[in-house]
Design a protein around this nucleic acid. Structure first.
Length: 490
RNA sequence: CGGGGUGUAGCGCAGUCCGGUUAGCGUAUCUGCUUUGGGAGCAGAGGGUCCCAGGUUCGAAUCCUGGUACCCCGACCA
């Protein structure tokens, strides 16, 4: 076995890491904490990008691009914001190198120190709001609904492929509005877009909600989020949408003339999802045989493997395969025909399972004779042999079925590990088992902190949906408006 | 920054304690033949500054000193 994976149940972290590398998604780079996204991994990311971009445009947004470097003084304009990011910033201090006096290599030219250091963006609120100041004078200039696809850098101490890397790819939407109501609506709308994408494209069920004050984005008034649950029972924040109030408008002095002829500060939102979604996708569906990709995001949905002896037979099979490919493509199904002669069929079967291709077709001599094709679905690994005539319609339905089946499987798992917990003693026992624990909380940061200290569990969100019955805090016994979602998180 | 560990072929490792043939195994690669419905078999081949520098010794992957890189656990992670 060339590419044996560790088992999921044995060591989940190692299984995840092995899988990312062996399925050719990504690898660690020579630069500490940075990641190389390999072509297959990038192809999945591109599918995600394409769908998200379409959804952003359908909700009235446009793309733009802002600078990688942020003057240090910009970052410090908003007090909470700089405090939140200061500890993980990469800083540019010089703009030139020169030959080393000892003749070995180059050194940073001490003469070339920048007057003001530049921060490599950890997020772009500050550079964008300094720009928006020039774009906005009147209510007629609003709203501004911009999105940017970019890379950002956060100098994390410890990193993990896709889940937390020093540099990552993402999109960040930054909008400016004339009223508070409109801005809140926008941030909620984009959260809905994220949830829609997660559930209908990634097949990852998510909980929508609002963050507690201590988990809130640095500089935001409210942070809305979608929280997913991984197969090892740990939570993963999959996307966030922030209502920024007038904080950044005030910090960058962005005022506008209202319809009523008065002057007011602009209301803002920002929202983002990153390559971390790749981690969510992998950790939600994959099994010990490798990736399981949802048909809606698979770089190719179907792979055809010929099984043959000799060139003549291959030619006959290839003809059948190409006919079938044309019919599949006509239905909008992406398909790869793997007639690579240097790998054996068994090797290809294992390889495409590792890579998560939703449907695999095999055509051999037997099928030529009987007019059939063998269909194997990745999610259940079930195989069946059916007539090749009209099989394209069957496959189209099968792909839809796989999409809903893997969503349902993930949703069932989540339901099985989500439970109400009412006593803190019970909580301490249950948190070790993983999953979402729905508990009453008195709403104070102190209680939240105590729970985090003692159990490593955090409030993932205060959910919008579900049970809103009031109760008593499991720790302090004080009143609680509704249950909140606790979990250990990535 | 604190604690622990590891640097030997593209990758994964053994050998180091107790110095001694030509440094070995798995896998990958290349060649040939046979194979092809679940990661093929056999035969052969190529591939090494044993992390770096210095020291001890007749002799160092192995012992000593210094350096360095990476990994894990913590601190950090809107």
């Amino acid at each position: 076995m060339a590419k044996e994976l560790t088992s999921r149940s044995e060591n989940y972290s190692q299984w995840y890491n092995d899988l990312v590398i062996k399925a050719d998604l990504a690898e660690n780079s020579a630069v500490r904490g940075c990641m190389v996204i390999k072509p297959y991994g990038y192809a999945i990311w591109e599918k995600m990008q394409a769908e998200l971009d379409r959804m952003f445009k359908e909700t009235g947004h446009v793309n733009a691009y802002f600078p990688l470097f942020i003057p240090k003084s910009y970052l410090s304009r908003e007090a909470d914001h700089v405090e939140g990011f200061a500890k993980e910033c990469a800083v540019v201090t010089h703009y030139r190198l020169k030959n080393s006096p000892d003749g070995k290599g180059v050194i940073v030219d001490p003469e070339a120190r920048l007057e003001e250091e530049l921060i490599v963006r950890p997020t772009s609120e500050t550079i964008i709001w300094s720009t928006y100041k020039n774009w906005i004078q009147s209510y007629r200039d609003l709203p501004i609904l911009c999105n940017q696809w970019a890379n950002v850098v956060r100098w994390e101490m410890r990193t993990r492929l896709f889940l937390r890397t020093a540099e990552f790819l993402w999109q960040e939407g930054h909008t400016a509005h004339a009223t508070e109501t409109e801005a809140i609506e926008e941030s909620r709308r984009m959260l809905d877009v994220y949830a829609d994408f997660a559930e209908n494209f990634m097949a990852v069920p998510v909980v929508k909600g609002v963050k507690s004050a201590s988990e809130r984005f640095a500089g935001a008034l409210e942070t809305f989020c979608i929280e997913a649950l991984m197969q090892d029972g740990k939570a993963l924040q999959a996307g966030t949408s922030h209502f920024l109030g007038q904080n950044f408008a005030k910090a960058f002095d962005v005022r506008f003339a209202t319809k009523e002829g008065k002057e007011d500060f602009v209301w803002a939102t920002s929202w983002g999802v990153s390559t971390r979604l790749m981690g969510a996708l992998i950790m939600t569906h994959s099994d010990d045989n490798g990736l399981v990709l949802p048909p809606n995001l698979a770089p190719y949905q179907v792979v055809i493997v010929p099984i043959y002896k000799g060139d003549e037979q291959l030619a006959q099979i290839s003809e059948k395969a190409r006919e079938l490919m044309a019919r599949l493509k006509a239905l909008g199904i992406s398909v790869k025909y793997d007639d690579n002669d240097t790998k054996k069929p068994g090797w290809k079967f294992a390889e495409y399972e590792l890579k998560g291709v939703p449907v695999r077709l095999a055509i051999g001599a037997r099928d030529l004779e009987n007019g059939t094709v063998e269909i194997a679905r990745r999610d259940t690994l079930a195989k069946e042999t059916v007539s090749i005539d009209g099989v394209e319609n069957y496959i189209k339905k099968l792909l839809e079925d796989i999409q809903t089946t893997i969503y349902q499987k993930a949703a069932d798992y989540r339901a099985s590990v989500t439970r109400n917990i009412d006593s803190y003693d019970e909580f301490k026992v249950e948190i070790e088992k993983g999953g979402f624990l729905l508990c009453h909380w008195d709403g104070t940061p102190e209680t939240e902190e105590k729970i985090k200290e003692e159990t490593k569990a955090t409030i993932r969100c205060i959910p919008f949906d579900g049970d809103h019955t009031p109760g008593l805090c499991m720790v302090t016994g004080r009143p609680s408006a509704q249950r909140v979602v606790f979990a250990r998180a990535y």
